[in-house]
Amino acid sequence: MTDTIKIRSLNDSFRKTLVFGGTILLTPGVTSLTIERQAHLLELVRTFDRFTLGNDPHGEHDFGSIELDAIRHFFKIDYYDRDGKFASSDPADPAVTRRVMTIMRADEC
Rank of each mutant, 00 (worst) to 15 (best):
M1V: 06
T2M: 15
D3W: 02
D3I: 00
I5E: 13
K6L: 04
K6E: 12
S9H: 06
L10M: 10
N11F: 01
S13R: 15
F14H: 01
F14Y: 11
R15D: 00
R15S: 06
R15L: 05
K16W: 01
V19S: 03
V19W: 03
V19Y: 13
F20S: 12
G21D: 15
G22S: 08
G22E: 01
G22M: 06
I24S: 01
I24C: 07
L25H: 15
L26G: 11
L26V: 13
P28N: 10
T34W: 03
Q38V: 09
H40W: 02
L41H: 02
E43V: 03
L44K: 04
F48W: 02
R50Y: 06
F51A: 05
F51L: 09
T52E: 13
L53T: 09
G54S: 09
G54R: 13
N55K: 14
D56S: 08
D56P: 08
P57G: 07
G59T: 03
D62W: 15
F63C: 04
G64Y: 07
G64F: 02
I66W: 06
I66T: 10
E67Q: 05
L68Y: 00
L68P: 00
L68W: 00
D69N: 14
D69R: 01
D69A: 09
A70Q: 13
I71G: 01
I71P: 03
R72E: 10
K76M: 12
K76E: 08
I77T: 02
I77V: 14
Y79W: 10
D81R: 08
R82G: 01
D83M: 15
D83G: 15
D83L: 07
G84S: 04
K85V: 10
K85P: 09
K85H: 13
F86G: 07
S89A: 15
S89N: 11
A92K: 13
P94N: 07
P94E: 12
P94W: 02
A95D: 12
T97G: 13
T97A: 08
T97N: 13
R98V: 14
V100E: 14
V100A: 05
M101A: 04
I103Q: 00
I103G: 01
I103P: 01
I103A: 01
M104S: 10
R105E: 05
E108P: 03
E108F: 11
E108W: 06
C109G: 11
